[in-house]
Design a protein around this nucleic acid. Structure first.
Length: 705
DNA sequence: ATGTTCCTTCTTTTT
DNA sequence: GAAGGAACAT
């Protein structure tokens, strides 16, 4: 604390700070970091030190421009990026100042605002966030009720349709009024479901992911006082991965930035790979138009890859016809070794070749953790998993079955959600019969009839039944209905009573016992013969408890500033649930197996590799119909995005890149002819003219014994 | 209400 | 080829 206060009182040493912050930056980086206060667009190619610039710029604002951290808002796309940024800024400006900075994802910034202004935003305090799974099950429920015979669209498809509509600012009524033109198919069904969905969400006091954004935008638009409050607070706003923002996030940004605020956005149109879920890199163009005097800075000096890799990358991306600007990455690490292209007779040869190559690299002293296998589709990982296992090569997979999407975890969280928000029927209905309590569809139907009649939640309906029975009500159906659901109510009530008595982690442990989830999943594990297995359901529940424990510790240590006082009404459980729903991914490390300690080959999709780098990269399955995906052939737009995806894959490599494709591939039990990706053909056609080709083609057959 | 078998599906994924 | 969902039987 002493040190922190010292730092706080010592902004005068700014000349020294200046030097320290600008040290080891190149000219354009320096230009961006030390620019006068203004709106800025930083176009940062792959590996050009984008995060470094952002972190340095924020440090500069704090240490040199003497802007208070609380007047700065840094928005990122993922929690991981936000955490990393906070940590790196903390290292420069000290923890004390770092803690006052808002560095968060779009969604959690919106959540914070909505929690602070719930009533003004049309929400009741304690609202819960719908995860993807809950959203689908809610829609499924609505469809069953409203359109039992409508099978043409899956609940998840409707869910993403609704998300897209929200991202384009269509509420259900807007869609009904003026959406018919947008829709070729199923307009009536979608609008009916959307309208009902909107209503149920309000009833249940829950918001989905897009709703967090949309509601905040609406709040800021219609409430001038709240908007002005944000304007007087945020003097500098910075956005990372700007090419990934969607229309709604862009609107949010415009609303948050007041007349005296400066906005800096950093991004790379060539790395926009989330267009399929609403990301629109033309926001970069819009930004220049909509904001005043935007200073444009281009970073093209690449610190990551050897020149051969960059030559391939530059050539690849140059084929795109919708780029914002011609950008040629120039390396700083010398020519390096050539990119190896493996031409494999079949997918079996491919996995074999890659495994052998990894083995020989390892034998030469390279670490497994410096290598990565990147693929377009998750199903391509299977063959590599098998082959690597046979070669006794350790690997870690990113993505895949996510911890917080597992059934047992979602069950546990649903119980917790009911405790926090008793209107959350989606959560209640998920677990009302888990573990099995003889509450089937019939009982649920009867309950919901009461809900409709009384316009109340499921839990409330059960409570009403209880009162009815206690007061000597004697209608047979109601009494027997109550008997059926009584155990569930008792569990919820007893948990409610104990909630405040115990530390949260102990409470969650207790909950798992009281509800019977532990026993239920123990039996399930036993039936499948995976008792004590690392990925058993019970051990996952255990991991949940320790995750809660970690949360409790950090929650108790949090610094109480004016924002956290506004937050969450001081209910740690509500905070935990919100955090978890907005966190997902690999946030929860399998305890013990810290990724730094385990030396293992990394396996992931190209999408999830964005932002990462590895010494050795194997870009596999670089084939027609895979990369580019079969479905991309329909339009130039999709094709360009696929090419950017390939570009992202290529630019992950530092020292050496291996690209492989098979001439035939077994897929879902069937063997089909395959072949090199047209992207690869483009590159080879263009670069083969060069005297010194940056690549070499290797016939994988020679490897196979 | 629950257990069993058959049938469909098979990009990418964060929040 | 495996997993999740729906229809069917117990």
């Amino acid at each position: 604390m002493q040190d922190d206060l010292y730092q706080l009182d010592a902004p005068q040493s700014s000349e020294k700070s200046e030097q320290a912050i600008l040290e080891n930056l190149n000219d354009s980086q320096k230009q961006a970091v030390s620019a006068p206060l203004q709106n800025m667009l930083v176009i940062a190619g792959a590996g050009t030190g984008k995060t470094r610039v952002l972190v340095s710029r924020i440090s500069w604002l704090i240490k040199v421009c003497n802007i208070l951290p609380r007047n700065i808002l840094a928005v990122t796309f993922t929690n991981k990026a936000a955490g990393e940024m906070r940590q790196r800024i903390g290292a420069v400006v000290g923890e004390f100042l770092e803690k006052q900075l808002w560095a968060n994802t779009f969604h959690s910034v919106c959540l914070r605002l909505l929690r602070s202004y719930a009533p003004q935003a049309g929400l009741r305090p304690g609202f819960t966030i719908l995860d993807t799974d809950s959203q689908s099950s809610l829609i499924k429920r609505i469809m069953k009720e409203l359109l039992p015979n409508f099978k043409e669209l899956k609940p998840s498809e409707i869910a993403s349709k609704i998300s897209t509509l929200k991202e384009n600012r269509y509420r259900a009524q807007d869609y009904i009024d003026r959406g018919r033109l947008l829709e070729k198919n199923y307009f009536d069904e979608i609008s009916k479901i959307y309208a009902a969905y909107e209503q149920v969400c309000i009833q249940e006091n829950s918001v989905d992911f897009s709703e967090l954004l949309l509601r905040t935008v609406e709040l800021l638009e219609k409430n001038e006082a709240i908007r002005n409050l944000q304007h007087s607070r945020f003097k500098e706003i910075l956005v990372d991965e700007f090419q990934d923002t969607n229309a709604l996030q862009y609107t949010f940004l415009r609303l948050m930035a007041g007349p005296t605020c400066h906005v800096t956005v950093v991004g790379d149109d060539d790395q926009s790979i989330y267009g399929w879920r609403g990301a629109d890199y033309t926001n970069m163009k819009k930004f220049v138009k909509d904001f005043d005097n935007v200073q444009k800075i281009v970073l093209a000096l690449n610190y990551r890859s050897s020149q051969n890799i960059l030559d391939v990358a530059n050539c690849l991306i140059s084929e795109n016809n919708d780029r914002m600007m011609e950008k040629v990455l120039k390396g700083t690490n010398g020519q390096g070794s050539k990119v190896t292209i493996y031409n494999c007779p079949s997918d079996l040869f491919e996995t074999d070749t890659v495994s052998r190559c990894i083995e020989s690299l390892h034998n030469k002293g390279e670490k497994y953790r410096d290598m990565a296998i990147l693929y377009r589709n998750n199903y391509l990982s299977l063959g590599f998993e098998q082959k690597l296992t046979r070669f006794h090569i350790p690997y870690v997979m990113f993505g895949g079955q996510k911890f917080f999407e597992r059934a047992e975890i979602l069950d546990a969280l649903s119980y917790l959600r009911v405790l926090v928000n008793e209107d959350d029927d989606t959560a209640a209905l998920r677990v009302i019969n888990v573990p099995a309590r003889k509450i089937g569809p019939k009982v649920v139907e009867n309950l919901r009839a009461i809900c409709q009649e009384r316009n109340c939640s499921v839990l409330k309906a059960i409570t009403l039944l209880k009162t009815y029975v206690a007061e000597g009500g004697n209608q047979k159906e109601l009494v027997s209905l109550y008997k059926k659901v009584q155990p569930f109510l008792e569990i919820v009530e007893s948990l409610k009573a104990k909630r405040t008595e115990l530390p949260l982690n102990e409470f969650v442990d207790l909950m798992l016992n009281v509800t019977g989830l532990y026993t239920f999943y123990q039996e399930k594990d036993a039936k499948e013969g995976k008792v004590d297995a690392e990925n058993s359901r019970v051990s996952n529940l255990g991991a949940l408890v320790s995750n809660v424990k970690d949360f409790v510790i950090s929650y108790e240590n949090r610094t109480l500033n004016e924002d956290s006082l506004l937050d969450d009404n001081q209910d740690p459980l509500l905070t935990y649930l919100s955090n978890i729903t907005l966190a997902s991914t690999a946030e929860l490390k399998e305890d013990g197996s810290d990724e730094n300690t385990a030396d293992a080959v990394n396996m992931m999709t190209v999408h999830s590799s964005k932002g990462l780098e590895f010494k050795y990269v194997f870009l596999v399955g670089f084939e027609q119909d895979i990369l580019p995906s079969k479905r991309a052939l329909t339009s130039d737009k999709y094709m360009n995005e696929e090419r950017r995806l390939a570009y992202v894959g290529v630019t992950r490599a530092k020292t050496k890149l291996y690209i492989s494709y098979a001439r035939q591939r077994s897929l879902f039990g069937k063997t089909n002819p395959a072949g090199a990706s047209p992207f690869l053909r483009e590159v080879v056609r263009t670069l083969s003219e060069n005297e010194t080709k940056p690549y070499e083609i290797s016939n994988a057959l020679a490897f196979y014994s």
